[in-house]
Design a protein around this nucleic acid. Structure first.
Length: 483
RNA sequence: GGCCCGUUCGUCUAGUGGCCUAGGACACCACCCUCUCAAGGUGGCGGCACGGGUUCGAAUCCCGUACGGGCUGCCA
């Protein structure tokens, strides 16, 4: 009977929320660590659904676990959400400031007999369940009519029969056997509300119509539905449980084990648009088969119903490729601007005073096609702003072998009085190389290493032009004496 | 163990019973271009987990198996 009723309510909710009720979604992170790329994707989904429906995106910080929460994490979440473009319309609400609401709901549930107090300790429960077939709490205190008291938890009395069905836009309608749902804790022995209570009370209070969250929440959704009904919530929200993101071992991305902080990627020089585009493609694909898609198109085409239910591997290589695409699509000025934090920030490998914006501007288009993340930019141009190039030893040894050193000497002389422009510098070195029976590809190597310290980098002659004659000659001479 | 979810190239995916000799992207390989490295261009490698059904016809529907994942807290 209950099953039928709930399925009916679910279908009812679908109609109701799509037609009569203004769409209200929520993103409800708990501040227990850096903001996760998985969370970013979920937040984006919420943002899109709200925008498409002309609805409201509510941000709620679920900080009921005072042991693990920290204010700095909250700030990090807020910053990250703004950065990725999952801005909220309402909130942030903090559950830590709403405990009166949860206490009131708990009292009501107790008064109506839907919940009871329990003084079983974890050890006692564990000892009993080991001999018991059904896992979890066995309902020992159900009818002991215990009153509220220190150390006593309030438990929800779950039905012994029937099933509960979750109406889920991405996973069909998973159905759970009520008899297998234990009498879960609503309020801890110290009077603090548990996640499930706070979550449902808030969703109810905030008029949430669509719950879009990670797959890991699916197993406790029937509990939420039961609670929702007991609290007289009426039509429950529609759910969408999106798959978790996994690492190469196909395990759920974990804050401890994997690199998951959105902030880290941001600091390495991933562009907001690239990250957002990549995240959207995990479990979803635009209708026309393109992969690099402007946000407006995502906003137009995205449908929760099209989201894949299977876990997706977070592939940094593909992310990097996307980032390269976005970087190259930037016009030169925008690229220069995007590079700024890595050039004049505290992380720059040269003293701020040595940085020459003009010189960088001249090199920028050459750098742009050669980096995948902005964090790689300084290494491309550091020879311009450092007194001495940072020499890569292996490249040095290879380049200075046999004719290398004499090429260096001849190049030094040839560069003393030629015109200082890229095409002339190129032709000049070409001639020097020819005198040694070397093609330009070979002959440029010792010069490149002498001047930039590396065997790879932006085009050499443009680099020399920007570096200038005197510094170039000084480095060629220094290299010659050192080799 | 129990409950739930999932399974198309190495990875992310397209595919909703005939258009599939399964398409694209990343990665990888080769070639072209080339002052190095990139970028760009061309081509290549490579997949429907398995077994039964249903059907004239199945990657697509059903059942089973295997494998993977999530949950199983007085965490969220």
């Amino acid at each position: 009977m209950r099953a039928g009723a709930l399925v009916h309510l679910g279908a009812f909710a679908r109609v109701l929320s799509s037609m009569d009720r203004p769409v209200r979604v929520r993103f409800a992170p708990s501040p227990t660590g850096y903001f996760h790329v998985g969370g970013a994707r979920t937040a984006l989904f919420n943002r899109i659904v709200a925008t498409q429906a002309g609805g409201t995106f509510v941000l709620r910080i679920e900080d009921t676990d005072t042991e693990r929460n920290r204010d700095e994490w909250t700030q990090g979440i807020l910053d990250a959400l703004r950065w990725i473009g999952a801005d909220w319309d309402e909130g942030p609400y903090f559950q830590s400031q709403r405990s009166a609401l949860y206490a009131e709901a708990a009292e009501r549930l107790h008064a109506m007999g839907s919940a009871y107090y329990c003084d079983c300790t974890a050890e006692i429960v564990a000892a009993r369940t080991s001999t018991n077939r059904t896992p979890g709490y066995d309902g020992h205190c159900r009818d002991r009519r215990l009153g509220r008291g220190p150390g006593r938890a309030l438990r929800f009395r779950t039905p012994d029969t029937g099933t509960t069905t979750v109406v889920d836009l991405v996973r069909g309608n998973p159905t759970f056997d009520n008899a297998l749902i234990e009498d879960f804790v609503l309020v801890r022995g110290n009077d603090a509300a548990m996640f499930i209570l706070a979550n449902v009370v808030d969703d109810l209070d905030m008029g949430i119509t669509h719950v879009i969250r990670g797959e890991e929440h699916l197993p406790n959704t029937p509990k939420a539905l039961l609670l929702w009904e007991a609290l007289g919530g009426g039509a429950p929200p529609l759910f969408a449980h999106v798959s978790v993101m996994v690492n190469e071992a196909r395990q759920k991305l974990s804050k401890r084990r994997d690199k998951v902080a959105l902030e880290d990627y941001r600091h390495e020089g991933y562009l907001r648009d690239a990250m957002r585009n990549y995240l959207m493609l995990l479990g979803w694909a635009p209708p026309d088969g393109r992969e690099i898609v402007p946000w407006e198109d995502v906003l137009r085409d995205f449908r929760l119903e099209d989201v894949n239910a299977s876990p997706a591997f977070f592939d940094v290589k593909k992310l990097a490729a996307f980032n390269g695409e976005y970087l190259r699509a930037l016009d030169p000025d925008a690229f220069v601007e995007a590079c700024a934090p890595w050039l004049i920030g505290p992380a720059a490998p040269w003293p701020l005073a040595s940085f020459d914006p003009e010189a960088f501007r001249a090199m920028a288009p050459l750098v742009q096609t050669r980096v995948q993340v902005l964090g790689d930019v300084p290494a491309m141009v550091d020879f311009l702003f450092l007194d001495e190039p940072v020499i890569d030893q292996a490249s040095w040894e290879k380049a200075m072998k046999d004719p290398g050193r004499s090429v260096l000497l001849d190049a030094t002389h040839a560069y003393e009085d030629c015109a200082w422009q890229a095409d002339v510098l190129k032709a000049t070195l070409e001639a020097v190389g020819a005198a040694h029976g070397q093609k330009l590809g070979k002959a440029q190597a010792p010069v490149r290493v002498a001047v930039t310290g590396r065997s790879v980098g932006p085009p050499l002659f443009e680099s020399l032009e920007v570096l200038g004659r005197s510094r170039t000659l000084a480095r060629l001479q220094a290299a010659f004496s050192r080799a």
